[in-house]
Design a protein around this nucleic acid. Structure first.
Length: 460
RNA sequence: UCCCCAGUAGCUCAGUCGGUAGAGCAAGUGGCUGUUAACCACUGGGUCCGCGGUUCGAGUCCGUGCUGGGGAGCCA
């Protein structure tokens, strides 16, 4: 006998004898002298239909099998006499590993996403969430494949950082000091006796570290967890999320845009090609336009326009916005939605933003008032990518840090990269959960991450 | 953090004018020899989110808190 995953069993092109499968009961239907038992092992969306005959020695127990129970079945893969499936397993030995009591919270019907969030430890056992997390796994692999094939090196940038600002958002503190006994010097918290001898935080971005490696290994990317202590309560934000951050040496803002566009096209195309049944579930039950959207994104060229052109379009479109549009003000989500969904109805790359609204590390353009920043806005999820060409000129970078009130002493190692063999380089961050929202059509970030962390919520 | 909406059986919801709790599904029991979220019959199941108030009487009205959702800001 051989152990099979249900995925490979259902893809068999011939009957098989003595197959062993393991899984969890999804549903049981009794019929006179035998029972139909559908089991799922997580290897694919589909269940295997098991025929359990009344002649099995433990048939009385089998007839009590409830949804969620775990079983091991030995049997023969035969062509199904019923209409719903090609193959079924005629059981010769049916072991019940454990019974799930009737308090098992998942029922054979649709539950709301809000309810399933309260049982996040069990929701991957549903069709929808099983599919979502298989797609998450596939897309992670696709990221590595895409960048490896392009010759990028994968860099593990640190999770704990000593930088108190990485150019994005509030940070979570990392400390071993008992909070009630935090030492203070002249009224301010003193971390000199803390674990690292100075204040430490969870990273909000691996970018600064990735830049150092781009200037050594050429093209690199990091892909890992990132943390923001912002009190954001929206369907697009989480306190812990995964970010892909490529960084290319000898590349300018246009190379950066090309890479971002190519990345999104590859990943959406990969989902269409490789995620089959799982993707179909979302196209059928979650977002009816899913296939069309993904095909558009993976095959048509993205619109590119400067921030200045974007402002002109928004100011001249005749639409009333809640927030006024003018040069020097950041684009609000209503503006981004208008551009990506109403005006162009495809992904839009907006570049060359005003210097005043962007962080210190973005390269100042020749006009002196804009920086080589670029955002990629996608219908449905809004900002999917944010990136820039980095300021490689030491003097300009130093004066930008002064303007921003940052300590050059703390960033001595970052500035060193501009002292020793500096080159034009660029990179961006892509929110992995937002990519998954785009690929699955799922509308809430809490439903594409296994155990979501959001303000006031850290169960599981 | 701000604005808006919601919270009733295990789940999804209804509940009229303020008059003492309902359905479907699920569960339990029985039936059925090819079912597909099987079907049929019967049975059990309630802190109406918490606290306070108005009232003869509150699921229903008022205040407040908590939880969840949507939108905004911030951002990926």
């Amino acid at each position: 006998m051989k152990k099979y995953k249900i995925l490979s069993l259902l893809n068999s092109d011939a009957p098989l004898d003595n197959v062993l499968i393991n899984g969890w009961v999804r549903t049981r239907r009794d019929s006179g002298g035998f029972s139909f038992i559908e089991i799922n092992d997580g290897s694919c969306l589909k269940n295997a239909q098991i025929i359990a005959d009344k002649n099995l020695p433990n048939y009385d127990d089998i007839k009590k099998l409830s949804t969620g129970s775990a079983v091991t079945v030995l049997g023969n893969l035969v062509e199904s006499k019923g209409g719903g499936q090609k193959w079924e397993v005629q059981a010769t030995k049916f072991d019940i590993i454990s019974m799930a009591p009737d308090s098992f919270p998942l029922q054979k019907k649709r539950h709301t996403d809000e309810y399933l969030r309260t049982i996040a430890h069990l929701r991957p056992r549903t069709n929808k969430y099983g599919a979502a997390f298989r797609i998450r796994s596939e897309m992670s692999f696709a990221i590595h494949k895409f960048y490896k094939d392009k010759g990028f090196a994968y860099i593990h940038t640190p999770i704990i950082t000593g930088s108190d600002c990485e150019g994005a958002g509030e940070m979570f503190k990392v400390t071993t000091i008992n909070q009630d006994k935090t030492p203070k010097t002249e009224g301010k918290a003193d971390f000199s006796s803390d674990f690292f001898g100075k204040a430490a935080n969870l990273t909000v971005s691996g970018q600064l570290s990735a830049e150092m490696f781009a200037l050594a290994l050429g093209d690199v990317y990091s892909f890992g967890p990132t943390f923001r202590a912002e009190n954001s309560n929206t369907r697009k934000h989480a306190a812990e999320f995964w970010m892909l951050e490529p960084e290319i040496a000898f590349g300018d803002i246009y190379d950066n845009m090309d890479l971002g566009e190519e990345t999104i096209k590859y990943l959406t195309g990969y989902a269409l090609d490789e995620c089959g049944d799982d993707l179909e579930l979302f196209a059928k039950y979650v977002d009816n336009n899913l296939y069309k959207n993904l095909e558009t994104i993976s095959s048509s060229d993205f619109v590119r326009l400067s921030y200045e052109e974007a402002v002109k379009i928004l100011a001249g479109c005749g639409k009333k916005f809640e927030y006024e549009v003018s040069f020097g003000k950041d684009l609000q989500s209503e503006h981004e939605h208008f551009l990506a969904e109403e005006h162009f109805n495809k992904p839009v790359i907006v570049y060359n933003y005003p210097k005043s609204i962007k962080p210190f590390y973005m390269r100042v353009n020749d006009d002196g008032r804009t920086v080589a920043a670029m955002d990629i806005l996608v219908p449905g999820v809004g900002e999917l990518i944010g990136g820039s060409q980095r300021e490689e000129r030491l003097d300009v970078l130093e004066s930008r840090m002064d303007e921003s009130g940052l300590s050059k002493k703390d960033y001595w190692w970052y500035l060193d990269s501009r002292r020793f063999g500096t080159v034009p380089h660029s990179g961006f961050g892509l929110g992995f959960e937002r990519l998954l929202m785009l690929v699955t059509g799922i509308k809430n970030i809490r439903d594409v991450i296994p155990f979501p962390r959001t303000p006031g919520s850290i169960e599981f």
